[in-house]
Design a protein around this nucleic acid. Structure first.
Lengths: 149, 149
DNA sequence: CTTGACCTTGCAGTTGGCTGCAAGGTTTAG
DNA sequence: CTAAACCTTGCAGCCAACTGCAAGGTCAAG
């Protein structure tokens, strides 16, 4: 009755990650140690597949591996992680709102600055501070320009 | 007629960075090597102060140190960096728009998911994948949740 | 002369989530 | 039997922009 088993590469392919990533999650306490064949190969079952999918789904929702580990721990202790999931996601939502507001404010500043820059002729000089307008308008802020789309 | 000079600590304090950061910028080719006293202490003038302020201002606008170095190079070659500044900032603005759109789309998804979660009772089970709803709705996305505000 | 605040260099560590590599053992197809 | 395609471990490196530390030299005040 016990379903299919998988080598680490099959498991990884099924979820779209690399074997190293699976080992990394194990090291980080997100997956629990796998069963082994006599020769030492890791063997996974469908429950492991589901756990791995959960990890990726939770990551896609913006949870960090540390937060996901916390949820996994709760679950392993038999306590329902649902309340904690809600709290974490609500917190993410608030952080998201703050971030969006911040980026919009910054966008306004940057586009105002660009409008002024476009209205100016190029400076022919190579002044020590390169571009004076930037000095006068760049304020306060430390934007967080994370890449990745 | 040559104005004030500064030790690295004074310079750093004047701009709100640490001496290590100033040395780091020098190593990275953003500041050019400073004059030295006989005993080897770095000595800066007001032009250096302005250059350092420029670096921080440009960072505040979202430019990376690599991009700022490029501007500094242009300036040192006597070519006006203004056109490049405009191009870089326009690019930042576009990236910002993409990012804001992405975060808003993600915000919508997350808040819909939360609404569904709030409507559900806690699962008492500690199922292998922790929380089934999350599995069903978490898609595709890889949000970039940079911290810092 | 001593204390303490400065400065110097070089190099390791931080963050988060992987990714790569080397050196070896195993399994499977032909 | 061999070659390819797996697997194992351990550990270094990546990104950016710093930050910290150790071990030592310098300088001004009292």
């Amino acid at each position: 009755m016990s379903g299919r088993t998988f080598y680490i590469g099959e498991l990884a392919r099924a979820v779209g990650v690399k074997p190293q990533t699976v080992r990394y999650y194990e090291r980080e306490g997100l997956l629990g140690r796998a069963a082994r064949t006599r020769s030492g190969y890791r063997l996974y079952d469908e429950a492991a597949l589901m756990r791995l999918r959960f990890i990726r789904a939770a990551q896609a929702l913006g949870l960090s591996l540390a937060e996901i580990r916390e949820l996994v721990m709760l679950s392993r202790e038999g306590r329902s992680p649902c309340a904690r999931v809600r709290a974490l996601l609500r917190e993410k939502l608030r952080a998201l709102d703050r971030k969006i507001a911040e980026l919009r404010a910054f966008r306004r500043e940057l586009s105002a600055l660009l409008a002024q820059l476009d209205a100016m002729p190029d400076q022919a000089d190579s002044s020590p501070y390169v571009c004076s307008l930037i000095m006068t308008l760049a304020g306060h802020h430390r934007p967080d320009h994370g890449k990745e789309g």
